[in-house]
Design a binder for these strands. Structure first.
Lengths: 223, 223
DNA sequence: GTCTATAATACGATAGAC
DNA sequence: GTCTATCGTATTATAGAC
């Protein structure tokens, strides 16, 4: 008998009177809590005790499943990298015209960020605290996630629908335009308290304006 | 007799044989070290001991000058907010044609980021760790720094040289395209180890491509 | 103004009961 | 598999000498 994820993990006590849990569910709960904590505070700043409290278990369990703080961190980083690949790959962007593929990529990135608004901070924490030492182990996944965008830009230039541009720099500019919005959200809500920048309607506005800006900035107007 | 900032702060011992220092210089050294530390690790993750070591003084001095960790953090946040204003205001962007002013703004932002590559992390740390609780105290400064860009976009639309766009969203998109480059640097160096993304030549490439993308994305092509 | 020494606490990790 | 209790260390902060 397994717990359903999302409900309280306690199972009624066994005949011995001791409460028991589903190990796989516990592991996932720890990972979820750790992702939030490490996103907020990074590897050094993250508190094992805080993760345990959020996950509803004790610090001893974390050491039982992940050996130590660093092992847990490594496991936390792995999941989003895989999910990013899994979000991009099934789109089969290589089979679409560059312009269509680009818009689809942009909307997928923004939807991913909207679904995990603070997950990107994981990578900024990693970059700034550890100079990407743990990120380094995942370069393969990220190359897979970003490669399709490079490919789109090169195909667009080749067929003449995109103007001449540097694919790598343009990739960074596109991602920046899409993602920065979510990074600054918690600060900017104090600049413009009346707008809920994470509401679906406002995120959709962000997506539309992003697509418009990037397409206008990249399309070859002589074409 | 004062120390010159940047050289070793020790002054030859006085007649009593006790080494002395310039209090103002000490304070600045603490602020510099603290900015680096808090940028890397945020308020909670930052270590007073690490700041003291970098500044070349003891932890006792930090408490002497800034009362406690939180007081030091508050002082650290204040300086970049002021400097951002001081970088933008003298450009007198309101007196330039929108297109010229926009390019100047973009290049100023990128130059500022290149000069302080990890300073932007201060704000991300603040956003994610503290939900902008300390940022809130500085909204005035940031409104002053960003206001000119909003103004440029609105003037451009009014005179018809810019297409119809949302000034606030476009501001975020522009900043994202300019700044994201520096945020991901430490991770992406592992994706493309052969390129030194902080070298002046590559930063200039980034600036050129940014200007090109943003201007092309914003200009009214019917104009 | 700056240091050394230390008190007080917070945190990561482990042992051992159940 | 999960908990309670605890050890050892790292960290913030302070007291007091110079």
């Amino acid at each position: 008998m397994r717990c359903i994820a999302g409900v309280l993990p306690m199972i009624s006590s066994s005949s011995s009177g001791r409460s028991v849990r589903d190990p796989e569910a516990t592991k996932q709960q720890i990972l979820d809590a750790a992702e939030a904590e490490f996103s907020r505070r990074g590897l050094q700043g993250g508190r094992i005790e805080a993760i345990a409290r959020t996950a509803g278990i004790t610090t001893a369990m974390i050491h039982y499943y992940f050996e130590n703080k660093e092992g847990l961190y490594r496991s936390v980083l792995c999941r989003p990298a895989q999910e990013a690949c899994e979000a991009i790959a099934p789109l089969q962007l290589e089979k679409l015209p560059p312009k269509v593929a680009l818009e689809k990529f942009i909307r997928t990135v923004i939807a991913y960020e909207a679904a995990h608004p603070q997950r990107c901070m994981l990578w900024f924490q990693e970059a700034n605290q550890n100079q990407g030492e743990y990120f380094k182990l995942l370069t393969g996944h990220w190359a897979d996630a970003i490669g399709p965008l490079i490919d789109i830009l090169e195909r667009g230039m080749a067929e003449g629908s995109f103007r001449a541009l540097d694919p790598w720099l343009t990739t960074v500019h596109i991602l920046g335009a899409c993602i920065f919005y979510f990074n600054i959200h918690e600060n900017w809500k104090h600049l413009m308290p009346e707008v809920d920048r994470l509401s679906p309607a406002v995120v959709e506005q962000h997506a539309q304006e992003s697509v418009r800006l990037i397409l206008a900035g990249i399309l070859n107007h002589k074409f």
